[in-house]
Write a protein that binds this DNA or RNA. Structure first.
Lengths: 188, 188
DNA sequence: ACGGTCGACGGCAGTCACTGACATCGACCG
DNA sequence: CGGTCGATGTCAGTGACTGCCGTCGACCGT
């Protein structure tokens, strides 16, 4: 056994989610999170750039998976179809995470600073997707617009999935949302 | 003449933009902004909730104007056409503000915290537009998706307009961007 | 087995964003 | 002319975040 308990980041992330749920994001200090995780405030800030980031550690994984999914789509497909396929693939990531997503999203929605952070993560994701499209020969502004549209579909589908009590899968909501976007864009 | 110089907010906003351009957002303290405006730090925070907000004072005006433009669109129009019309109307707001927009946008793009703030302002705008659609009988998720798509069009068109040196108007870029979105959504 | 390096963490002092409480004083009102 | 009000100043405090340095098991080469 090492000098320190293992999985410091995991403990910090769990402690943070717990405290943010118990007393709210603003009423929680970094020192409290660190203490619950058996660490010090200084160590908290070694792992996370700020108090919000501890909730978004998984964002880069989502981004990687999303870009990966898009990359593994036939180059000949129309951008919107590639996006549809990537959305389909990505929803698998959330199959076993409805409850966790619900809790985390409730915390985020309740605080403006956390919403800001979520938005910039989605914007980063959008940029990455646009870059992927460009590397596949889609030119701007089509690349950026398809990426933005895909993120909008994801955002709205995800919101609705999280709000649902039922057993419908995320993929259902994403398909529905994308279909509606097509209808709307067609001017109907 | 009153006890204080008039237009404290205007002075603060100009001082802030100047300093953010001169030395960067992070390297500027609230006290410095206040001092250049002939005020104290405490007064700065009475006018703006935080250091970023001083750059976004006009955001609620844009939101009002945008919602207003959308409201004054024929109810019988398809949502996407109403959005197109609103975008057209809104671009008039920026007719005389290319240089100002360029400077401000350069500051924002250079700093992640400011980008976050911009994103949440756009998200707020999107919510307001979606609510307007709903009040006109468009149901969700079409209302939310049209709003999000419109904001995406605005964002991308605006970026390109700001980057341009030429004399093309914002409205041109918005039309182009919207047209491209329609093409993309149609799967071409 | 031993000295040296390294990585993860603790401790501490400091800056700055932001806040609450209270004081000031021209403008304006009756 | 006294009283109220609104915009600002003053001051003390909290907490987010950072730089710097110290600690000490793990690990590595000899």
């Amino acid at each position: 056994m090492g000098r320190w308990e293992p999985n410091a980041r995991g403990r910090l992330e769990q402690a943070a989610l717990e405290l943010y749920r118990e007393r709210g994001f603003e009423q929680t200090t970094a020192a409290q999170i660190a203490q619950r995780a058996g660490l010090t405030e200084r160590t908290f800030f070694r792992h996370y750039a700020d108090k919000r980031e501890v909730l978004f550690a998984g964002a880069h994984l989502l981004e990687e998976a999303f870009v990966d999914a898009l990359s593994h789509t036939p180059e000949t497909a129309a951008p919107i179809d590639a996006m549809a396929s990537a959305l389909e693939t990505i929803s698998a990531v959330f199959l076993e995470r409805h409850e966790f997503s619900r809790q985390r999203q409730a915390v985020i929605v309740a605080n403006a600073e956390l919403r800001e952070r979520e938005l910039i993560k989605l914007a980063s994701l959008s940029k990455a997707l646009a870059a992927t499209f460009r590397s596949r020969g889609v030119s701007d502004p089509a690349a950026s617009l398809t990426a933005e549209a895909g993120i909008a579909v994801f955002k709205i589908g995800f919101e609705r999935w999280v709000d649902e009590d039922g057993d419908r899968q995320l993929a259902d909501f994403l398909r529905e949302s994308l279909a509606e976007l097509k209808v709307v864009a067609a001017g109907r």
